[in-house]
């Protein structure tokens, strides 16, 4: 067992982990931050994306012991200080960018990383960036729209009845 201390969403948290314990397991099982999801065991689906020292990282591909001392942001840390939805989260709700919600934490974390490095991406750039995030529900249409909208670009609102 190794002792690990990380700063998660601004709070210092510690725990003892086995050498093989993944960051995703540590977050979910020991720190009870269950917003980070695990959808695969081959680092393909992106449901587990978190930010480690400002970079988007698949938490299932990192050992907890290796991030000792890191600053980590998870989906639980993405709302505004007053608890309201952050810009990307709000855009996902406004544009119906989620259905079952399982891929959503990873999608939001990836979108945040994308917009940090490319504040006004094209649709093609958004689609390309999401290569590592699988969603089975939405067909990506509304996820792409949500991210474009979160970047301040014009997209049509969801269709409303007459």
């Amino acid at each position: 067992m190794t002792s690990v201390t990380i700063t998660v969403n601004g709070q210092s948290r510690s725990g003892d982990v086995e050498g093989r314990t993944l960051l995703s397991t540590f977050l979910r099982d020991q720190l009870t931050l269950t917003g980070t999801h695990v959808g695969c065991d081959t680092s393909q689906c992106g449901a587990c994306v978190v930010h480690v020292d400002g970079e988007a990282v698949k938490a299932c591909s990192v050992l907890a012991a290796d991030v000792d001392g890191a600053e980590i942001t998870t989906i639980e840390g993405m709302a505004n200080a007053d608890g309201s939805l952050g810009v990307i989260q709000q855009a996902f709700q406004d544009h119906h960018g989620l259905q079952c919600g399982f891929c959503t934490p990873g999608m939001v974390m990836s979108a945040a990383a994308l917009l940090k490095e490319n504040p006004k991406p094209t649709e093609a750039e958004v689609r390309h960036y999401l290569e590592g995030n699988i969603c089975r529900c939405t067909g990506y249409h509304n996820i792409v729209k949500a991210i474009m909208a979160a970047s301040g670009q014009d997209v049509a609102p969801p269709m409303a009845a007459e």
């Binding site: 931050l33 269950t34 917003g35 980070t36 998870t74 989906i75 639980e76 993405m78 709302a79 939805l85 989260q89 996902f92 709700q93 989620l98 079952c100 919600g101 959503t104 934490p105 939001v108």
Partner: peptide, 9 residues
């Protein structure tokens, strides 16, 4: 959506 978007599902 609110709970799913904030990790509270």
């Amino acid at each position: 959506d609110v709970r799913f978007l904030t990790g509270r599902g």
